[in-house]
């Protein structure tokens, strides 16, 4: 079943995060007025982003200056001869027409720029088709692209408190790393202010204290933390026994197991 929605309500950053955490494979189709875009993912990583149909064609490699027209024709013939399971990019590398670094860099740069442009869309319908894959001759990144830093880029463009408050309701919360952040940080490019915030996260200081120590505004700290949260690096916890609104913790009534069992049996019998 396709996932359908609008990025006005469920932002592109949120969707990329969902794809990342869910290891999704498929194609995200986006439409905003007369503009369209298509992003292909494999196991939560980005293979290709096309802002127009030509971006999914082999000729993209010529436009990006990776191949000349003759090389492309040769690569396409070789691809047809080798059959299923081989990508155009692999054929280009195997034939020595471009180095893996050059090919990856060109395709990654193009893909990133294509996605960055999408963050400027204020709205747009999306449909995610599970397991839809690009055509065999599509110019795919050799190594699928991690989307963590794409999420951060999207978050940098947020200029409204409301969206951030949805996930960070109070600056009295304490950000805490879910795991040592080393692996997640690979390939993520942080701005100097984001580094400042990142370096101050110690599992003890509240967001307000981090703002005070870094000299950044509450908004800038919360925006950076929102990005780390969206990228799945952090969680926010309440400082023990010091609750944001000064409210005492509410104890849940502890019931006897026998009473719960009676309710269970009654519901089962209905």
């Amino acid at each position: 079943m396709a996932l359908v929605g609008n990025i006005r309500d469920f932002s592109l950053s949120d969707f990329l995060s969902l794809v990342d955490r869910g290891y999704k494979t498929g194609a995200l189709h986006l439409t905003y007025h007369d503009q369209t875009a298509r992003l292909y993912f494999e196991k939560g990583k980005l293979l290709l982003a096309a802002r127009r149909p030509e971006d999914e064609k082999p000729e993209l490699l010529v436009r990006l200056g990776v191949l000349n027209a003759d090389q492309l024709a040769q690569a396409c013939r070789a691809l047809a001869a080798r059959g299923n399971g081989v990508t155009l990019s692999q054929v280009v590398i195997d034939a020595g027409m471009a180095s893996p670094e050059r090919l990856q860099s060109a395709l990654m740069g193009h893909t990133e720029q294509s996605v960055y442009g999408l963050f400027a869309w204020p709205e747009g319908d999306f449909v995610f088709e599970h397991n839809q894959r690009p055509a065999p001759d599509a110019p795919l990144a050799l190594t699928p692209i991690s989307i963590d830093h794409l999420i951060m880029e999207g978050v940098r463009r947020i200029d409204e408190w409301e969206r951030i408050r949805d996930r960070i309701p109070s600056t009295d919360l304490v950000p805490r790393f879910l795991a040592p952040p080393g692996e997640k940080l690979k390939g993520m490019r942080l701005s100097p202010d984001e580094w400042k915030v990142f370096a101050r996260i110690n599992g003890r200081d509240t967001l307000a204290e981090i703002a005070q120590k870094t000299g950044l505004s509450d908004f800038d700290v919360c925006r950076a933390v929102y990005g780390f949260l969206t990228a799945g690096m952090l969680e926010l916890v309440k400082r023990q026994r010091v609750l944001a609104a000064g409210m005492p913790p509410v104890e849940q009534p502890r019931l006897k197991k026998s009473l719960v069992n009676r309710i269970i049996n009654r519901i089962r019998s209905m």
Partner: peptide, 15 residues
């Protein structure tokens, strides 16, 4: 749905 919630409550309840 109610039963699944009750199972969660059951796990936390006292003997």
């Amino acid at each position: 749905v109610l039963l699944e919630l009750l199972y969660v409550i059951q796990e936390r309840s006292e003997d």
